[in-house]
Write a protein that binds this DNA or RNA. Sequence first.
RNA 1: GCGCCCGUAGCUCAGCAGGAUAGAGCAACGGACUUCUAAUCCGUAGGUCAGAGGUUCGAUUCCUCUCGGGCGCGCCA
Length: 568
Amino acid sequence: MKDVKAKMRENLKEITVSALKKAIDEGAVNLAGIPDFTIEVPQAEAHGDFAANVAMLAAREAKMPPRKIAEIIKDRMEIAGTGIEKVEVAGPGFINFHLSPTWAHGVIPIILSEKENYGRQDIGKGKKVQVEFVSANPTGPMHMGNARGAALGDALASVLEMAGYDVTREFYINDAGNQIENFGLSLEARYLELLGYESQIPEGGYHGEDIKDHMRELIEKEGDRFLSVDPAERRAYFIEYALKKNIERMKKDLADFGVHFDVWFSERSLHESGKVEEVIRILTERGYTYEKDGALWFKATEFGVPKDEVLVRQNGMPTYFAADIAYHKDKFDRGFDWVIDIWGADHHGHVPRMKGALAALGYDPEKLTIIIMQLVRLYRNGQIARMSKRTGRAVTLADLVDEVGKDAARFFFNLRGADTHLDFDLDLAVKQSEENPVYYVQYAHARIASILRQAAEQKVAVPEVEDVPPAEMERLLSKLTCEAEIDLIKKLADFPDVIRVAASTLSPYRIANYTLELASAFHSFYNVCRVLTSDKDLTTARLLLVKAVQQVLQNCFRILGISAPERM
RNA sequence: GCGCCCGUAGCUCAGCAGGAUAGAGCAACGGACUUCUAAUCCGUAGGUCAGAGGUUCGAUUCCUCUCGGGCGCGCCA
């Protein structure tokens, strides 16, 4: 893994450690060991390119003021031939490293040869991880919350892939249970109603227009023949019919949103294969259940949950929770080393009991990470638009793609962390689409594409990295010395770090933020430095630079699921 | 009542998993296109990081409490 920044950090750490060791050996500083310090990038440019905080951490044990320790370390540093131009002690005791301005230039050939793999990490070490997200109710169209989950989950999965995990994207279809019963009753009511019979949608049923559409379509195809069919039987048929349509629709809407799942997992299959029953039996055998009021309960309180939970209802039907336990057991039985669920904030209360159930089954609850995503509050015409499926007037994911566009919507959702409460003003999103930040980053890509087109027209070649000897490459890139160029190159060198942090904190929004920063550095560069000039070497160097920028932008866009336009 | 999330510029949010003088975008104001796309750039202004304690050499970041907002606490999913 080639990472100029990480390598530099390592070098600086080694230099600092050996200087400190020397100081200890000489008795200049009294320490038993080397503190676990970091080499970080200071905020202010005046503080150099990197800084070590070791002196502050050592101060207490050494019983010396940090600045003095820093001076002692600094005096013993061997910096000849390291690219370090100056070492300074500053502030409370930082050791600041000022490097030669070209220290990061080597990142350009690395990007151009690694291409879409630039930034890839190996922290996952090929571990099998499953990301389960969206898992929307198949009883109707997907809403804004599902859209957020889709954008977040897909980007997270991509980030983990970049970090070296073997990722499976999975959608859990809740095609069983009470809601499906209600779905059937609602379909049936609409069916009867459409044929002129009096009928009522039940309590907790679905009032959406889509329910009516399903039945209208069915009547066109099959007429009124279900009037004489046994109600339970015809409801089963309606459910089968409408579920299939809904799931196909969800697949299509998600595909239009740029999200593709590896596995669509049916809840019903867990019931049919006996896995729900099996998991209940195991819990019982392990002594974690008891009967009360005609129901079977899970002793959740033994795992720090406020109250016990029902597994099997009085009527003999297993609860959603029971199926969910079976589902999670199945996930681990399929060999995943790590399971990540993305749930809406309205489900956060179920986290402890799910983990408790896993512990009861003998699995390590630490291997399940549940990301709680705060809900989306949707504004339209200046007021809150309800998202409930039952009102039938929700803004759907498909509407969002139509009105705002896939790229803008996905970028917008991934601009914020999962735990921010998100107000989405649809009118504003549409109205401001011209000023949407997504255009800012895409424009950077399009501008570069335009430069490369111009270069091709002028028969200016951009050399392939493989064809340029390292010494020649170094000579060419040494032409890149103005501030905008240096800043841009450093930004490129940040990318592996960004992947690392985004993956280890499960925060794909960091990619979106970084993309904005990179685009900003590019736009600034563009306004100051002309790429196609009469200076041949400078032109070549800048072409290599912008090509590298374009590559990194593409790598970001791929993670975020947005397109990389050649023209805008 | 109990639990989880949030509170940073007028608005929407960052703040690199404790670091130095808290940053962007939008909105406001002033500049920059005979030159690779002005969907851009440069500058000005804007702050009691909700409040109070604590841990630390150092807190926007970690802990406790208070206030304010959101969401949960079903034999629904």
